Amino acid sequence: MTKTVDQSGISNQLANQAAGGAKKGPTIGDLFEQMKPAIAQAIPQHMTPERLLRIATTSIRTNPKLKVCTPESLLGAVMQCAQLGLEPSVLGHAYLVPYTNRKKDPNTGKVIATVEEAQFQIGYKGLLELARRTGQISSIVAHEVYENDLFEYEYGTGEKLRHVPADGERGTVTKYYAYAKFKDGGYSFLVMSKKDIEKHRDKFSKAKYGPWVDHFDEMAKKTVLKGLMKYMPISVEFAKAVSMDETTKREVSSDMSEVIDVTDWQPQENEEPRQEIGESAQ
């Protein structure tokens, strides 16, 4: 059971910071320090609040675009890292990705306000880690397929999957696939073309920087893994963890999964995807 943690002090600090004024507001480091008790309650045993906050602080310091994100979204993203036991670092477990959300007038469709927010994203390696923790999977992998590789697959009653990497020059990547073997002896796999992966990226991200730019293969393998999970006998806890991926929070709570996700990654019908900071509005 999740313990109740009083966040009123942090909420007041955030409100004061947003209001501005003559007095200098608290730094993100100050807010992280106040958040430490809640993180300590949420974090798994293999991590410590000090390590997580140190890594998160480093991520923010090394990415200028994160420095202008709302404290609520940054704290929310870090709390999500804590709850899932994933570190927001170059290891590929999780990412803190800055975005500009544009609020539009429902009548005219014109942008009337903008706000910079941090989005929590699970990395490819983080998704593998979460899947393995379920205890239901004996093996799970995702790979690129190059044009010179021997690759055969078939769905249906005679389904098969065979991949033999080419020796020497392998050419360019043409496909990605994910494969999972379960402890009961069953298995499942999914294959996606590179074009399908690019369509997914273009639909949900207008990124000019971030994981899709810096780590395309990792994000592609994560995409096919998430597609595969629709056919996997995963636990409720794991499904809940995956649902936290690519979300932004605007409130702070000891249980971030109970905070409504107000900026889901998928755009609503007839609405343009959210643009990232630095991208000009059309």
Rank of each mutant, 00 (worst) to 15 (best):
A241P: 09
G227Q: 06
D217W: 02
D245P: 11
Y231C: 10
K240F: 06
G227E: 02
D217F: 09
S235A: 11
H215R: 15
G210E: 13
E246R: 13
K222W: 04
I234E: 04
T248A: 10
F238Q: 00
D214S: 13
M219S: 10
Y209I: 01
K222N: 01
L225V: 02
M244E: 03
A239G: 13
T248M: 14
S235K: 02
V224L: 08
L228W: 12
P211Y: 11
T223F: 03
P211N: 07
T223K: 01
K249L: 14
K240C: 01
D214T: 14
F216R: 00
F216T: 12
E246M: 06
S243P: 05
K249F: 14
T248I: 15
M232Q: 04
K208M: 07
F216S: 03
K240Y: 02
M219Q: 15
I234G: 00
H215C: 10
P211L: 00
H215F: 15
D214R: 12
V242G: 05
A220V: 04
K226W: 11
Y209E: 09
P233C: 05
A239I: 04
V236F: 12
D245E: 10
A239Q: 10
W212G: 03
M244V: 00
P233Q: 06
M232D: 04
Y209P: 09
W212M: 04
M219N: 15
M219R: 08
G227R: 10
K221C: 09
M229H: 10
S243T: 09
A220H: 05
V224G: 09
Y209A: 07
I234M: 12
M229D: 12
V224C: 13
K221N: 07
D245Q: 09
A239K: 11
F238E: 00
K230P: 04
H215N: 13
D245L: 07
G227A: 02
L228Q: 12
P211T: 06
K208L: 07
M244R: 03
K249M: 12
V213D: 10
F238D: 02
P211C: 00
A241L: 01
Y231D: 15
H215I: 04
T247Q: 14
E237I: 00
E237F: 00
E237V: 01
Y231P: 06
E218K: 13
A241R: 00
F216C: 08
Y231M: 08
A239F: 11
G210I: 02
M232Y: 09
K226V: 14
K208R: 07
M244Q: 09
V213Q: 15
K208C: 02
F216Q: 06
D245C: 01
G227H: 06
T248H: 06
T247G: 03
D245M: 03
E218G: 14
M244C: 06
Y231T: 14
K240N: 14
W212F: 05
A239M: 10
M232R: 02
M219I: 03
A239W: 09
M219V: 03
K230E: 14
Y231A: 15
H215G: 05
Y231G: 13
I234T: 08
M244T: 00
T248G: 08
M232G: 05
I234R: 02
W212I: 06
S235Q: 04
P233A: 05
E246I: 01
K222I: 02
T223A: 11
K226H: 11
A220K: 08
T223S: 07
K249W: 09
M229S: 14
